[in-house]
Design a protein around this nucleic acid. Structure first.
Lengths: 234, 234
DNA sequence: TTCCGTTGAATTGTAGACAATCGTACGCCT
DNA sequence: AGGCGTACGATTGTCTACAATTCAACGGAA
């Protein structure tokens, strides 16, 4: 009774979590524009559940920073400013570098196992890349980086990072310009994986900085700290 | 109508937040031991509110990592293992170093203002130190470090850190041994403040590592990964 | 004696109704 | 005409009751 793939717990997740996942996904793909209000009751009978679980899911997303709650008024999709995007990427670089540093101090065999786990993820980038499917590519991209951080074995860092990963996906849907040129994607990630294997922290630092710094991209949008109007302005 | 100190919003906070704060405080001071179950209904009529807000507060603390939710069974106070404590301190060092690095790159005048804001916090450590009031001292200690991280101006890092700060307080109540000798407390923080002013990142790195590394303290408790029984075993 | 199935209590999960709160728009007074 | 007060609509916040689920204890059969 072991070796069978764990049977993946039946009736797995609480309702509120399922709802939160759906809403998160909806926000990522842009079904709700920044600033839009999300109505508890409305979501509730769209999903055929009562307001309780919905409310719980919404508050969860508020705590993740995706939604903003104005007391007694409702929850609204957080408007990302240019400054927010910069913050997210700065924070990601901090945590990823730390994770990389922890990994480089591991035994070579452990590092090898970690990198071996990352290669298939990079491989899976080819398909969406060929299709110009940026949404899916971004998802796999973040999966790679999440794997990197998780491999460091620090639950706290991993948890903090998962929030940032979600925010990054939203950033991408708001700022397609923040994504590097297609041919850089694969080599960039491969480079990071190789450096992890070699264990040269200095170069990793540089590589991650290149990978996550926004200096190259033209984010200096119209206003200085204006909220992104994100396509359909209102 | 400006320049008056903002009048500090009446009817300040939502009920669930107030409850969450109270519970968090109770956990920190050890009113609930690790592993104890927290009953929604029981808390509810102790506070004369219904289960709704209590439930919301509990889920909030679950997301902070203080409580553990077993679906359909209830929420329990998270049991901190030695490994958990190590994780928390490792993560703290990561974020604090990053914050310090960001600060050292600021203008000298900004750094001066930041450090000036930190000095009064250090001063407030003397009183509880003289009284041997570790709980209060720990609180001010964390206030100092939280101020450090906040000063870096990255909301995401600050939010991640606040969770770690709370966990640290619980660690302290579980492991009094993890706190340095009394006379090191003041000088340790003063040193960090001075180095921030000077802007020498290398020494800051060392100082923060010394300040947050657990190598010196005897945490290798009884079992390897045993949960802490935290005083009153049961 | 050991194992399995059933029953039971306790607690969370969900639903629907009610109350409180906020923003808006209208009307009145100055 | 401008500003103030008041009533209304909409939405969240809170409460009570009910349903679903889990685990543990009990009892019977192999």
């Amino acid at each position: 009774m072991q070796g069978v793939q764990a049977l993946s717990a039946i009736n797995s997740r609480p309702t509120a979590v399922v709802i939160a996942d759906q809403l998160r996904e909806s926000i990522i793909i842009g079904a709700f524009g920044p600033g839009d209000q999300i109505n508890e009751a409305q979501v509730a009978n769209q999903l055929n559940v009562s307001r309780g679980p919905v409310r719980e899911a919404l508050h969860r997303l508020v705590q993740e920073g995706l939604l903003l709650s104005r007391p007694n008024r409702g929850v609204f999709v957080q408007e990302l400013t240019v400054r927010d995007v910069a913050e997210v990427y700065e924070a990601r670089e901090v945590i990823e570098c730390a994770a990389a540093e922890i990994i480089t101090k591991m035994l070579p065999e452990d590092r090898a196992r970690i990198v071996d786990g990352m290669r298939p993820i990079i491989d899976r980038m080819h398909a969406p890349l060929a299709r110009d499917d940026w949404a899916q590519l971004g998802r796999i991209d973040l999966e790679f980086h999440t794997a990197l951080v998780s491999s460091a074995g620090n639950t706290r860092l991993a948890r903090a990072y998962s929030t940032l990963a979600t925010e990054s996906l939203i950033c991408l849907s708001s700022f397609p310009s923040a994504y590097p040129e297609p041919d850089r994607v694969i080599v960039g990630h491969t480079e990071i994986a190789e450096l992890l294997l070699e264990g040269s922290m200095q170069q990793l630092h540089l590589a991650l900085h290149r990978h996550l710094s926004l200096d190259d991209y033209e984010l200096r949008s119209s206003g200085e700290d204006d909220a992104l109007r994100h396509g359909r302005n209102e």
